[in-house]
Each structure stands twice: as C-alpha cells, then as structure tokens.
Design a protein around this nucleic acid. Structure first.
Length: 647
DNA sequence: TCAATCCGTATC
DNA sequence: ATACGGATTGAC
C-alpha cells in the first residue's frame, strides 16, 4: 500500500491517506511520484509519500488510479521540509507543495538529460574572505563540512557574488550540494556567473520565476535527478531538491521579494533556516546590512558574525556626505532643475573629471510623489517634525506624512513662496535633467523593464540613473554615487522603512570606489540626524540593526515576538480568533491586538506571542483553521505568520 | 406514508 | 470542497 498526500484544499484534510497499490503500478509507485486517486468520489492528484505494509485505516483501501509518471519529483527531504513549512506558517502541505514542486511537463521529462558533472571542485581561493573577522574560519569550516552558521556583513566595494561562490566552492568540495537564494533574477544571473567561474562545468543550475513551464521543469529535473548539485535562484529555489546538502545561503535576506506572496506566505530565509536545521548543514546569511532577523540569530548565538573590523571597513568604504533638503541648490541652472545641491553637483563633476562613472539612485516610480516648493523646488517639509508634506486628497489641506499635522500656512523655508508642486522623482526626468547639467556626458538608465548588469568597461565619464535594486555594477567602482530623494523611503509608515532605506542606500553606495581611491557618496535630501543616515555616513550597518532590533524588542515587535495577522470578513475573523482562545494549547502570554479595519469588507486582528512560543501560536492557528474548514464552510480567513508588512 | 430538505460527517 | 446518510419537516 501507499501513503498519499492528496491535493485538496480544506485544511482538515491535510494529512496522508492510504491506498492499495495494484500490481501493475507496484514498480512505478515509488516515494515522490505523482499519482491520481479516488478521493471522496472524485479523481484527485497527489504525491506518493511512502510505501508501507500496514495501514492505520480500518476500512477498505481504494486502489491508486494511476502513477502519473515514474519521476520521483518530491524527494523525502523536500516532503519533510514542506511539512515543516506548512506547520511553521499554519498552512497546508498541498499549498506548500504547489510552491515547492513545479508543474509536470511530459515532453521535457522524456528528453535525454544532461550528463552528470565530472571533475573535482577546485580548492577555494581564500583571499576574498581574508579581510573579514571570522572569514577564514568560516571558509575552513565549510571546507571541512562542519555545519557552521554565519551572518556575513559584506564589505562595500567587494564582489559579493564571487565571495559567495567561494563559500559554495568550499562547502561543495566534499561532494555535497548547495542552495543559494537571492532576491531577484539579476542577482541570480550574477551569482550563476560567479559560481560557474569557480565550479566545474555542469554543476550549477539557475532557477527564476520567468523561465516558463518547460525550462523550469527541465532545470528542476536536473536537480531531482542528481545531475546538478548547486542551485542559485529566487525564493522558490529554497525548495529545490538538492541532494547531500552542505550549505544553504541567502543573499540580502531583508529584501521583501524573499517573502512568498502565496499561502502560506513563507519567507525564503526562514525556509532555508528550517532546511539547514533539518539537513544539519551550514547556513550563511549575507548582505551589506544584516536583516533584523539575522541580527536575532547573532544575539541568540545561533549564528556567528562574519564582518570587517572598524579599520578594515574604513579602507573599503566610500566617503559619505549628507546634503540635507535645506542645503542650497547648486547655482548652475541645469543642476537646479535636476534638484542637485552644490555638494552633490560638485561630487559628480569631480568624479566625471576623473573619468569615473557616476551612479544616481532615484526612488522607484510609484513612490508617493514628494511635494516641493513651486518656485525653488526645495521639498516641502513639516514645520514640526521635518517630515514630507502630502496632500491627503484632491483639494485637501497639506499635511505631514509622518506626524499628520496639517500645514495650514505653509511657506517655503528657502524662498518664502507659498505654493507646492509634485516634485517628480522618476528616473526618466532625472536622467534628462542630469544630461542637461552635464551635456557632453552620456546617460544610461537602469530600472523597470530595462535593467543593466554592468556599465561598459571602456573608461570615460558616464552617468547611470537607476532605481533601487537595478544599479549596474561598474568594474572599477563608481567615482560618485548620488542617492536622491533620500527622505522618501523613510516616509513609509512601515516597521521596516528605515532598515529598507539603509539596505537600498548601502547596496548602491557599495558600488562606489573606496574613499582612498576618491569614491564619494552623497545622500541628497536626508536629515543627518536620522539613525539610518548616520549608519550610512559611518558605514556602521551592524550598530544600526542592533539598535533597530533592540527598539523592536522593547516595543514587542517581531522578531522579538511572533506575530500572526488574521485577516478577512469581520465575522469569520472574530470567530477564528475566539476559537483560538478556547483551545487548551493556546500559548501563554498570547495577546490579541485589534481588530482594526483594513478596507470596506476586511478587518485584521493581530495575535502576538513570545518568540519561543511561536510554534504553539502556529499550531493553534492551524488547528482552528482545521476546525473551521471541517464545520460550516464560511468565508475564508487569511492567516499570515511573521507578515513582512503589516498594513 | 412518502418525498424534499437540512444538517452533520467522512473523505483511505 | 463535496457526496452521502440519517433525521426532520411538510403535504398527500
């Protein structure tokens, strides 16, 4: 007989069901294959989890209707991981399996697979980890196959993908595999190139969401069939069926795109943490700025820090200056129209004169457009708290986006004008205006549909305007990096706004040359007193994140606590929460926050438990969902654990 | 006394 | 979810 995970929706059916295996399917009915079975009268698809000789089930067993294909796509390791992920996020196994196993593509399955890689893995070049305290030790541990766990704060101006590739090489030197998860397709391409540069041909496979069904399944099969043993990919790659796992790595784990938007909303970093724990393998979290969650792993000593000492950081970091919004604009007319203060304008001019490329980071389109003085274009700010002013609705009074105070008789601090206009902060316009300020310098744009990987290597002055995450790297480093509209991301009413802003700034600023080689970074339109700005100026991301973590801890925010957002129609949300509270297993110290209205027909209640009771919180939520789905079927209630954004 | 309907329950 | 059965209710 066989134990089958059937692909059905209701939460209370999330458990294995036993089926008899007809003799003709006996050979093909191996663990991990897709099957079809009759379930409650219907044909449904499922995965064969395991063969067994006895069944708990008292009644007669239905036979398997078919083995869809003999391909063992759900390896036991991934089945176990998927179960743990479902439990951790109070979701169901079928939901997780939809994220973990790509849809079958029969033609691809019949293709002749690529040959297995041959050749030994070269010994890694330790040079890239030499500057870090704990770097050489990390590399040695990986080389020796020890399950080290590290939070790596990347030095600015260094090739992080190459360093990551060295770590993977070390871990793979014993024949094991590695999973590397990065935020987006461009990072995948970059890591793939770095990995292929140091690993034997036929070792690496890249997985991204944009591959299309056939190619996605083809690459998945290379891993599940053991033809490749290293994968680099976006968030879904956390589930890639790599065998003999030696290392899980995640780059820039504070990036929102690592959070899966489909139920049960797992975060790739935490999936990999579970996976590394289950596999007993090494785990590496890297980034220019550690995430607050990463800091939490250091604070509990679960992981060790790998970072440059102060004097090392000073050698690598660019010089960072702040041009506040009250700074005078450059006198040059073109610079004025590009909203450039003198400090920034001069830095650009110096860098271009030295033949260096210049990077200009502009906030992503779609950010709330800032309001600025109608005459001199200095951003309109709140008199009380210096937050950006907004117009809450058409014809409404100006109000501060931070503190909410109405700005009744607003006047520009700079020139005294009393009107505002939308200060367009789009890359197109900035590109045009910078071009006008430096007419003989070519301007490249990177962002949206057109993302550049690197800027041309031939020397010569060049301006690159990019949105966050789309900054191309420059082979010798940028002479200057401008971070425009720096207050804009800080204005988001979000728990992570400051952390996110620092991450984006550091990602761009890290592409500058070090200060000793003349590299300059200018943060335009920032308040020098803001901690995130201070952290950039001093290139001290660890201190910022520690402080951020301590503040969140003091306020009872994640990750010091475990939160669950329960969202849906008011009745069902209240019913589910009430049900949770009746359960005997309800975690001690559980707090109920809300409900608060989200929109017309939706409301949200937050449940908060001490971090160490997170598993209990997930368990009672899952149990309540099961009870709910078993009884009167009402409207669905969405449960998100550790939601990335609340609100 | 039979049938349409409602609720509760199991789904291997 | 969805199909089935036992109880329930209503009409001949």
């Amino acid at each position: 007989m066989a134990r089958v995970a059937v692909d059905v929706t209701p939460a209370h059916l999330d458990r294995p069901f036993d089926y008899a295996v007809p003799p003709e399917f006996d050979a093909a009915a191996q663990p991990g294959v897709r099957v079809t079975v009759r379930f409650s009268g219907r044909r449904v698809r499922g995965f064969l989890l395991e063969r067994c000789s006895v069944s708990e089930h008292a009644g007669a067993l239905s036979p398997l209707l078919a083995v869809v294909s003999p391909e063992q796509v759900l390896t036991p390791e991934i089945a176990r991981l998927a179960r743990a992920v479902a439990d951790r996020w109070a979701g169901t196994l079928p939901d997780v399996l939809r994220l973990a196993v790509p849809p079958r593509h029969a033609r691809v399955e019949r293709e002749e697979g690529a040959a297995q890689a041959e050749g030994a893995v070269a010994a890694p070049a330790p040079a890239r980890w030499q500057p870090y305290r704990g770097g050489p030790a990390l590399l040695n541990a990986l080389q020796d196959g020890r399950p080290v766990r590290a939070v790596w704060t990347t030095l600015p101006g260094t090739d992080w993908a190459a360093a990551l590739a060295d770590a993977v090489t070390a871990a793979a030197s014993g024949g094991g595999g590695a999973v590397v998860v990065v935020p987006d397709a461009r990072d995948v391409a970059r890591c793939q190139a770095a990995l292929e540069a140091v690993l034997p041909a036929g070792t690496v496979v890249a997985l991204t969401a944009d591959l299309g069904p056939a190619e996605r399944y083809r690459r998945f099969l290379l891993l599940s069939r053991g033809r490749r043993r290293v994968v680099v990919g976006t968030r879904a790659a956390a589930f890639a069926p790599v065998r003999d796992l030696a290392l899980c790595a995640v780059w820039d784990d504070g990036d929102d795109s690592l959070a899966e938007p489909r139920a049960p909303y797992p975060h790739a970093r935490d999936v990999l943490l579970l996976r590394a724990h289950q596999a007993g393998c090494a785990m590496l979290l890297g980034g220019h700025v550690p995430s607050v969650e990463g800091y939490g792993l250091l604070a509990t000593q679960w992981a060790q820090p790998v970072a440059g000492d102060r004097d090392v950081v000073r050698r690598y970091a660019p010089r960072v200056e702040v041009a506040g919004s009250d700074t005078a604009l450059a006198r040059d007319e073109a610079a004025r129209s590009a909203r450039l203060p003198t400090l920034a304008f001069d830095a650009v001019r110096r860098a271009l004169a030295a033949s260096g490329p210049v990077l200009v980071q502009v906030p992503r389109r779609g950010y709330q457009a800032a309001l600025a003085c109608i005459r001199c274009r200095v951003p309109a700010r709140c008199a009380a708290c210096a937050g950006p002013l907004q117009r809450p609705g058409a014809g409404a009074t100006l109000a501060c986006a931070w503190c909410g105070r109405a700005a009744v008789d607003w006047r520009c601090q700079e020139c005294g004008a009393d009107g505002v206009r939308a200060a367009v902060s789009g890359d197109r316009r900035t590109a045009e205006e910078l071009g006008r300020a430096f007419p003989e310098v070519p301007v490249l744009r990177s962002g949206g549909e057109q993302v550049l990987d690197t800027v041309p290597t031939e020397d010569g002055p060049l301006l690159v305007v990019a949105t966050p995450g789309a900054e191309p790297s420059a082979p010798g480093g940028y002479g200057a990096v401008l971070l425009l509209d720096a207050w804009s991301p800080l204005g988001r009413p979000d728990l992570r706004a400051a952390e996110d802003a620092l991450r984006r700034w550091c990602a761009a600023a890290a592409l500058a040359r070090p200060a000793v080689r003349g590299g300059e970074v200018v943060l335009v339109g920032a308040d020098a007193g803001v901690p995130a700005v201070q952290a950039l100026v001093r290139w001290a991301p660890a201190g910022f994140v520690r402080r951020e973590a301590e503040q969140r801890s003091a306020l009872g925010f994640p990750p010091a606590t475990r939160m669950a957002a329960v969202e849906g129609a008011p009745g069902p949300v209240a019913a589910l929460v009430a049900d949770v509270l009746t359960l005997a297993e309800v975690p001690r110290g559980l707090e109920v926050l809300g409900p608060v209205p989200v929109d017309e027909q939706t409301e949200r209640t937050l449940l908060r438990a001490p971090r160490e009771r997170g598993a209990e919180l997930a368990a009672v939520l899952a149990l309540a969902q099961r009870r709910r789905s078993a009884g009167r079927a009402g409207e669905a209630v969405r449960v998100r654990l550790d939601p990335v954004a609340i609100g």
